[in-house]
C-alpha cells in the first residue's frame, strides 16, 4: 500500500514538471520511473499511475477552467460533439490517466527485465 501511495504522489508531483519545459508527454517517462521505483502488482501499478495521471491532468485543467469561469470549455465543448465543461475535464483526466498508466506499466516491466529479484 505504501508503494501505491508513493507512486501516486511521485507521478502527481513530478508530472508538474510539464509546466516547466517538459513536453506534454513528459508524464510518460515520469510514470515509467515510478513504475520502476515502486514495484507493485501489475493491476495496482497501473491503477496507481492512472489515478495519479488522471488527477494531475484533471486538477490542473480544473484550476484553469475555474479561473476562466468555464468560458473556453463551453466553446471547446461545442467542437467535440457538445461536451460540457465537466465532460471535457473528465476526458482530460482519462487521457492523463491512460498515458501515466501505460508509462508505469512499461517501467514496471523494464524493472522485471533489468532487476532480477522481483518484489
Amino acid at each position: 500500500m505504501r508503494h501505491f501511495i508513493y507512486s501516486v504522489l511521485f507521478i502527481f508531483a513530478l508530472g508538474h514538471l510539464c509546466h516547466f519545459g517538459l513536453p506534454w508527454w513528459g508524464l510518460v517517462p515520469v510514470a515509467m520511473l515510478a513504475g520502476w521505483l515502486f514495484p507493485l502488482s501489475a493491476g495496482k501499478n497501473f491503477s496507481a499511475a492512472f489515478l495519479a495521471g488522471a488527477l494531475l491532468w484533471f486538477v490542473n485543467a480544473y484550476l484553469y477552467n475555474a479561473e476562466n469561469d468555464g468560458m473556453l470549455a463551453t466553446k471547446v465543448g461545442l467542437l467535440f460533439q457538445g461536451l460540457n465543461a465537466w465532460q471535457l475535464l473528465g476526458l482530460t483526466g482519462v487521457l492523463g490517466g491512460v498515458l501515466a498508466g501505460f508509462g508505469a506499466m512499461t517501467g514496471r516491466y523494464a524493472r522485471d527485465v533489468f532487476v532480477s529479484n522481483r518484489a
Binding site: 506534454w24 490542473n60 479561473e67 476562466n68 487521457l95
Partner: peptide, 19 residues
C-alpha cells in the same frame, strides 16, 4: 488530442483568468 487536451500546453492554457 494529447497535445490539445493536456493542461500544460494544450487548450486549457488559453482559458484566461476571467478576472
Amino acid at each position: 488530442l494529447g497535445a490539445f487536451f493536456n493542461p500544460f500546453s494544450g487548450f486549457w492554457k488559453n482559458a484566461e483568468p476571467a478576472k
